[in-house]
Design a protein around this nucleic acid. Sequence first.
RNA 1: GGGCAGUUAGCUCAGCUGGUAGAGCAUCUCGUUUACACCGAGAGGGUCAGAGGUUCGAGUCCUCUACUGCCCACCA
Length: 694
Amino acid sequence: MKEIPTRYDHTTEPVTYDEWEKSGQFSPKGKGEPFSMIMPPPNVTGDLHLGHGLTYAVHDTIARYQRRLGKDVLILPGADHAAIAVQALVEKKVQKEQGMSRTQLGKEKFLEEVWKWIEYYMPRMKVSLRRFGLSADWTKFRFTMDEHSQNAVQTAFIELYKKDLIYRGNYLVNWDPKLQTAISDDEVVYQEVPGKLYWIKYGPITLATVRPETKFGDTAIAVHPEDHRYIKYVGTEIEVTLATGEKKKIPVVADEAVDPEFGTGAVKVTPAHDPADFEIAKRHNLPAIEVIDQYGKLTAVAGEFAGLKASDAREIVAKKLEEMGLLEKTEDYAIRQPISERSGAVIEPRLSTQWFMKTTELKKEALAAVRSGKITFFPKSIEKTYEHWLSNLHDWCISRQLWWGHEIPAYYDESGKIYVAESLDAAQKLAGATAKLTKDPDVLDTWFSSGLWPFSTLGWPNAEAPDLKRYFPTSLLETGTDILFFWVARMIILSLALQKDVPFKQVYFHGLILDEDGKKMSKSKGNVLDPLILIDKYGADAFRMSVIGGNSVGQPQRYSEQKIIKYRNFVTKVWNAARFVAITADNTKPVKPTKLDRTETEFCQKLERLTQNNQKFFTNYQLGVALEELYEFFWHEFADKLIEYEKKVIQETTDVERAKEAKAFLSWALQEQLPLLSDFAPFLVDRIKKEMFQ
RNA sequence: GGGCAGUUAGCUCAGCUGGUAGAGCAUCUCGUUUACACCGAGAGGGUCAGAGGUUCGAGUCCUCUACUGCCCACCA
């Protein structure tokens, strides 16, 4: 009899993983039907949360299932440079350790610090990723800032520029005064804060506004075209008195965007600081006057108020207007304030010269790709969200005033003319030898490089790269709904633009993990669970099953340690059932006996059904259901019923052959279930095989 | 304001194309120390959010309502 402990020892997992990796079994063989997944690259910010754990658990479970079916599986791992996030972290670190700001340190030194950060965190992150048991091909690991990625990004930019899909222009952007950069619409979140609605006299017209401090930048008053109250003013100019006492004339325009029901039905138009006003101004050819600068302070046009922070200026200006008899009344009002998701600063819509990507044509193609079924979403309901977002998509601001990130391959001569080229030399050729060129100082939005990820990782822009030819378009993208717009939609757009094909055929959106009370987990709430600590305590298999089990496609799930305990117990159960089979049926070859009694036949039928369902559930990405059924079957059908039944048979029968057959049947039944289990619990099954059946 | 989900046992959740409800945890009873107490046998517990409709028959399809969550939006 073998000496087998009654507990599965999960501390051997890293060793097992090492063996797997060294054996090369995670690398695709290049034979069979390809099945590829590009792993969502985690940010190199130092920590992995439960959401990452879920992502990798699902990735790996699907990959192992596909391998079991005989597919040529590739999981390509990577990491993201996370421009804004990492820059902010390194800035904090430099400030703390050297007492210097980024600007004091200088760009070159600062970037050295960033690379030090990357060099420190990258290896740690890779070690962490391996703890999940992720069967990724590490030889193909890619970082969004490695040389190949940089080249891909530069090439993409140049190609898109040549195709006239990228342009530079002075438009209203979301300005983050804290980070001193523009950010995209999707990086802005809104918060309701108590504020006031100010009713201000503009000559004969009174209008309501929440931002009296921007009055200096008003270049029109807008009313609805059918509003009879104001029709007589439309087309005329009205003299307006500013808080500085200065008087100026501004036109009254008619625009559909104005809601006659709100306030007085008249609205001030401040094109430089309000997206809606900016649009009105475009339609009526109105000038834009900058009232707020890049630091969020009032500019010279505000006269005596110049230099005040916009938020402070509000009440001061209003008070002055009141003294001047221009403030009719105020009322309490909930303001919807735009906040930078990155820094928490109040966003100031501001005119700025930036690079943009045109989306008008591409979004149609991106819509068609999903509508036509070239890309399938799981769950399907996400398609509506996707459609809605795309149809409302504006051009995408892709430049950022940061230091850490992909450089923009654009050069300017003294007259400001743009030369887009891969190097200074190449630009110089375009501009002529005498031109004095300067490089664009900005970097690209992180999501621009992430958007190229499904093909840049496979060798693009080299169209002949073997991996690109074999594994693109990828089979499946597995991710969370939180980055549907940031990432999923952008990959589709950029892939259609540059590869003329979809980046993936299926997208599986797993649901968000919430805490016990159904609240989002966040560091600030202090309700986060560290997946690596859970793995240390209970093992990777239990962890993987705990995030997959009881989770269904796209549905949020509440998570607590109780769940992982359930699966840790399951791991022990499987271990002990296998142990029993190994001990009693030690030398039996796992061949299905030919003679079966009724109980055994019934078991076979149930097992057959389980296998069929398993495949069906995986096809629909109902991993939670697949796991639950397996759990039920193994524990209650196999362990509780079949093992107990055969145990009795073995004890009671006098027929030696019958006892042998019972043992053989048990052994066979176990071996049939182990492959199914190994999708979810690869470490456990590996150990069972090695310790008990070798 | 619009869109999308969800509302099933005390708790966490399953329940595909309709046929009078399931699991895990928790509770209670009993058992077992030669696979496993991270165990076994069993029990209690649900008018499937509410109302209406389709149907021989509805958690399961339709409509409306309520509550919860998520996403989007230029009502200043």
